[in-house]
Every structure is written in structure tokens, then in C-alpha cells.
Lab assay of single mutants.
Amino acid sequence: MASQGTKRSYEQMETDGERQNATEIRASVGKMIDGIGRFYIQMCTELKLSDYEGRLIQNSLTIERMVLSAFDERRNKYLEEHPSAGKDPKKTGGPIYKRVDRKWMRELVLYDKEEIRRIWRQANNGDDATAGLTHMMIWHSNLNDTTYQRTRALVRTGMDPRMCSLMQGSTLPRRSGAAGAAVKGVGTMVMELIRMIKRGINDRNFWRGENGRKTRSAYERMCNILKGKFQTAAQRAMMDQVRESRNPGNAEIEDLIFLARSALILRGSVAHKSCLPACVYGPAVASGYDFEKEGYSLVGIDPFKLLQNSQVYSLIRPNENPAHKSQLVWMACNSAAFEDLRVLSFIRGTKVSPRGKLSTRGVQIASNENMDAMESSTLELRSRYWAIRTRSGGNTNQQRASAGQISVQPAFSVQRNLPFDKPTIMAAFTGNTEGRTSDMRAEIIRMMEGAKPEEMSFQGRGVFELSDERAANPIVPSFDMSNEGSYFFGDNAEEYDN
């Protein structure tokens, strides 16, 4: 993207840094990872977990959730003011799984939030270390993106479920800051804005008074975040219109849905970061690795190297396929839920299948599930090659597409044709070009129609051997075009429920 120079890199967003050079960025990201790792080690000690239990991804998720809940100030305040039966607002906890007599047992633990905050700050040299908290939120978000298709949420806001490739980060909490905003897809931002506008339509006082002023500035800020994701002048001009509207209503909703559809071809720039579970960072720190000293990046080879040398386990339900569970977590670790499966298959070195073909449910185990038949197995999170994460949407291309997802959002900077089903997408653009945004709409449609099938995206960008740390010898991959490109292809993934 041309304006790259004016933006802070995501590592800076990730670490609240002012302008830093590459070495400083690597050190501050490393410091953040160190903090998460030290916190995780301490929690495993508190909970008396064995090494194996500490490497269980379900335990990692519970521990991450506990610290996120302990620092969720708004919710904590709300819980104190609106006490609900049987919930102690000062405590947080969740299921911890232990191996007892050759069987997995679930144990519900409860801790004072104050105590968890103390352990977290102690692991982070006394700081609140917001960057580390956001990092864990993005890992949870990436896992949700890989596990669930947001059909219901899309339909509720009037969008087409086939636009799911635009929904990265749709389950990120509001408090995820600049680093969170960077990884949100165009569809996620559109959905947040539509929800806001709908509230304004239904509630006369939404934009009024002292609160209304705050609401208005939040609305304009979200519009600017979305505008910054678009790469064409016409899309940005249309966002200006939406932002400046005196009284946002149905016309703005129409414009936003139009823009979301246009992003299936004229893709937005959305950041991709490899955020790993805390149970990967903990053992690495415990083994003596100093992330701050060595430096770390979320968008280069580092996460690949770390996963190459990590042992992570997962509980497996009786009829689940461990290899499929591994694929789910591998995609989440690489922030690749909406990437082209052919690119992923090449990088991973084994075939990556669409969601609907995987015999696996989510990673988390519900409290009512029976533990008797639970097994555990090693997650295979290694890769054959590594590639640089991208934040450009890439230019655009036609490809055989599917009944489910009709476009992709690249996660890796790797040369390819970008699949999208042009006739299906263009069919949504018939007729409606009147109104105050008509010239911009016409211009956007013209650009979409001009998108050429034979153009290559990320020209000359390749993948790298894991021994090639400096990215000196790019390998331009070859793809098996007979395979499906979309992950949520004609899909039956479970729906995400809060």
C-alpha cells in the first residue's frame, strides 16, 4: 500500500510504541512475548500442572481467558453494579484439565481477579502490559475465525453469508486497541457500523446529549479505520460520505453494504499476525530463551520457528480426527482463516481442507461434555516452508469459486491468482447506482469489472525454506488448481455463540 510509510507498523501498534527502528520493534515485541511466557509459567505453578498438562491447549485457553477477564475493567465495573446470582464479580476462573488415573478430569478453578492481575503485572515488570493482553485477544479471535462461520451475524446486519472472507476479527472485544483495529476485516468494521446506525434509528437519543457526542466521535473513528483499509480513492470518498452524514440511517447502511461487497474484489488491507497460545510461549521462556534479547516478529519467520520446536497437546472428542484438529489450530496460529487453501497447503506441506470436510468441533470443551471418553493427542503445528504475512489485500483475480465463501483475504505475501467468483459478486451490483453516491458507485463498479483474471497478485513473492531466515531465496510455489480455494466452501461450520 502506498501510504505504508505514514502508518505505524503493526509491531508498533502491538507494543504501543512511538516510531521505533526494526531492532527496537523486535525487542519490544519480544518483551511482550516474554511477559506472556513468564505469566503462563507462574500460572502453571499456581495450578500445580504437570509439564504435559501445561502444554494442553484447553488449559492455555482457560488461563488466557482468566487474565483477560481480570483486566476487563468495563465488564468488571458492570458486574459490580449489576450483581447477578451466583456470579462473584471479583473472581474469575474456568475449567482446568488434569490427568488422573490414566483419565482426563475437569476441575473448575476460581481465583481472585486481583490475584491474577498481581501475577500478570509481576510477570511483566510491574506494568499492565496491555500489548500482551491484546495479543491474547487476537489469538482467540484468530481461533474463532478458523472455527466458526459468522453466517447468522452477517444475515442479521443485512449482509450476504458468502462475504465471510471479510469477517476477520469479528469476535475481537471493543477494547483491543490499535492492534485489534489493524486485524479487523472490512466486513467486521461494516458490521460494527451498521449495528451502531441501527441503534440510532431505533433509539432517538442515541446521537443526542453528552453521551451522543461520545457516540458520534466513536462512529467517526470507526469510519476512519474502515476508510484506511480501502485502497481505492472511490471507496475512500464513499467512506467520507458515510462519516460526514448528519443523521446516519438506511442510506448509510446501503452504502456500507455496497462497500463491503466491493471489497470482495477491490480488497481492503487487513493486517495478519501470528499470535500463538500462551502454552507455546511459556515452555520456550522456561527453556531459557530470551525473546527480548533475541527479538521477535509476528509477521516473519519467528512464529514458524517457534511452532517448529513446540509440543502442544489437545483434548480430542471420541469421533474427532486429531489431524483435522491440528489443521484448525495451525490455521489459527498463522492467522489464515480466509487465505486461499492452495497457498496454505503449499506452505504447510500437507493438504489443507475446507472447514466442512474437517471432523472436528471447536477447541474448547463445553462444561456439560462427558470427560470419560476424552483422549488427548499432539497437535501437528509444523510447516514445510515459511512466508511473510501481508497486510495488503493483493490485486484481484477471477477463479472458480464456491457456493460458500466467494473470495479470499490473503494472509501471506505469496504470488498467486486470487480466487473470487466474479459473476456471483457482480450480480449483486445491478441497477442500484442512484442517489448521492452514484458517481462513486459507478466508478467502483467500473474498477471491479476491469479486474483481470490473468493478473498475478504479489508478483514474484515466494515462500522460503525454514533454514532461509533472511528470506534470501524465494520459492514461487505451484498450486494444484483442481483443489478448492475457499475454506468455508459450501460450508456447515458451527455458528459462533458468545
Rank of each mutant, 00 (worst) to 15 (best):
R199D: 07
E64D: 05
W139I: 08
L172Q: 02
A451H: 15
L379T: 14
Q459Y: 09
F304K: 12
N432P: 01
S217D: 08
L379Y: 14
D372K: 06
A471I: 10
R99K: 14
F39S: 05
D16N: 14
V190W: 13
R99G: 13
I347N: 13
V463W: 09
L110Y: 10
G490Y: 11
R150Q: 10
W104L: 02
A182M: 12
K357S: 04
Y487V: 03
S392G: 08
R342V: 01
M1F: 10
A366Q: 10
P322N: 14
I347E: 09
K293A: 03
D302R: 15
Q327S: 15
S274V: 10
G187W: 05
Y111F: 14
S28C: 01
V155P: 07
R152H: 07
N334A: 00
Y52F: 13
R174L: 06
N142E: 05
V408R: 09
Y52W: 12
E375V: 03
L259N: 09
S413T: 13
M196H: 09
E339D: 15
A251D: 05
E53I: 05
N397L: 04
C223N: 09
F464A: 09
R382G: 14
A260K: 10
S326R: 07
G180I: 10
M189T: 03
L341K: 14
Y52D: 04
Q405T: 05
Y40H: 12
D372Q: 15
S335K: 06
K113V: 10
N395I: 09
A218W: 09
D88Y: 07
L133G: 02
M331G: 02
G295H: 10
A22I: 06
L264F: 15
Q311F: 07
R26K: 08
E244W: 10
V29K: 07
V190Y: 06
N202V: 02
E465Y: 08
R162E: 10
L298R: 09
I201H: 05
T134F: 10
G228K: 09
I225M: 15
V29I: 03
K198A: 08
M426D: 09
R416F: 12
D421V: 15
S314T: 12
W207E: 10
A401S: 05
N397R: 00
G158F: 01
D421S: 01
G349N: 10
Y97R: 13
K91W: 07
K293D: 07
K31W: 09
D491P: 09
E320I: 08
R389E: 04
G404V: 05
S367R: 04
Q168D: 04
F338E: 10
P477T: 11
R470E: 11
R416M: 12
S457T: 03
K273Q: 09
G200V: 12
V352R: 10
A451I: 15
D51P: 00
M13F: 10
K198M: 10
P277N: 07
E46C: 02
A251P: 12
C279F: 05
Y10D: 00
V280H: 12
V285G: 08
N124W: 13
Q12E: 02
A271S: 04
E292I: 12
R461N: 12
S3H: 01
E210K: 04
E192L: 08
A131E: 06
G249V: 12
T146V: 13
G212C: 12
G17V: 13
D497V: 14
I138T: 06
S314G: 13
G37Y: 10
S269M: 10
D439N: 06
M222E: 12
I406T: 14
M13A: 01
A323Y: 03
A179Y: 10
W120C: 05
A284P: 01
P248V: 00
R102H: 15
V242S: 04
L379G: 09
M167T: 07
L276H: 12
A493Q: 13
I33Q: 03
S9Q: 14
Q42K: 12
R117V: 00
P173A: 00
K214F: 02
L226W: 11
R221A: 12
G209P: 05
I25F: 08
A428N: 04
E449W: 10
I57N: 08
F291N: 08
A178K: 00
L315C: 15
R55V: 03
R416C: 13
M371D: 06
M191G: 07
I365L: 13
R246E: 09
Y97V: 09
A234H: 12
E339Q: 06
E380G: 03
S176K: 08
N144K: 03
L108Q: 08
A85T: 04
L79R: 06
D372T: 12
R246V: 08
E434D: 02
S9F: 04
S60W: 02
H324E: 10
G169V: 03
M136L: 14
Q122R: 02
Q122N: 06
L166D: 13
V352T: 08
A129G: 04
Q241R: 15
A234Q: 13
S274M: 10
Y313R: 04
E220M: 08
M196S: 01
R156V: 01
K87Y: 15
I257F: 01
V476Q: 04
D88H: 12
P410G: 00
R8P: 02
N59M: 02
D72G: 12
K113F: 10
M66A: 07
N124C: 04
T130V: 03
E46N: 03
M167N: 07
E252A: 14
G462R: 12
A70S: 01
K31A: 04
T134H: 07
E484S: 03
V352Y: 15
R236K: 15
K77Q: 14
E380K: 07
N211M: 00
N473H: 02
L61G: 02
A387C: 11
M32Q: 10
D128K: 08
N21T: 15
S217M: 08
G35L: 02
K305T: 03
M331D: 06
K31M: 13
K229P: 03
A179Q: 10
G300I: 11
G300W: 11
D72C: 14
N224Q: 10
K214G: 05
L379E: 04
N76H: 09
S407L: 06
R74E: 10
W139V: 09
L315H: 03
A332H: 06
Y487T: 11
D340G: 12
E210P: 05
L259A: 01
Q149W: 15
I265A: 15
L276D: 12
F258C: 14
M448P: 03
V67N: 10
Q327L: 06
D160C: 01
N368I: 14
R236S: 05
D340W: 11
R470A: 00
E369Y: 05
E443T: 13
M331N: 07
R261Y: 12
K98L: 00
A182E: 06
M447K: 08
N321L: 00
E469Y: 02
R267K: 05
E14A: 06
F420I: 15
I425F: 05
Y313E: 06
G30M: 09
A332L: 05
G132N: 15
G30W: 04
T390L: 07
L381H: 14
S262C: 03
S326M: 11
N319T: 08
E115N: 13
L266N: 10
N59W: 07
Q42H: 08
Y313S: 02
I265T: 07
F479M: 10
S170Y: 11
I197K: 09
C275S: 05
E81Q: 05
I347F: 04
D34N: 05
F346V: 04
Q415A: 14
L143V: 14
T62M: 11
P89Q: 00
S359G: 15
Q149C: 08
S287Q: 05
P322S: 08
R121A: 00
A337W: 06
M456C: 15
R106W: 08
K214S: 00
R261F: 12
M238H: 03
F304S: 15
Q459V: 01
R162H: 07
D439G: 14
D72N: 14
K98P: 03
P474G: 09
R150E: 08
Q327T: 12
V408G: 12
R261W: 15
I116A: 01
N247Q: 01
N417L: 00
V329K: 14
R106M: 08
Q405N: 02
D240R: 03
Y78V: 06
G404T: 00
S176E: 11
Y296T: 12
A260P: 12
R199I: 13
D127W: 07
G17W: 03
G37A: 01
M196Y: 07
N319L: 02
Q149Y: 07
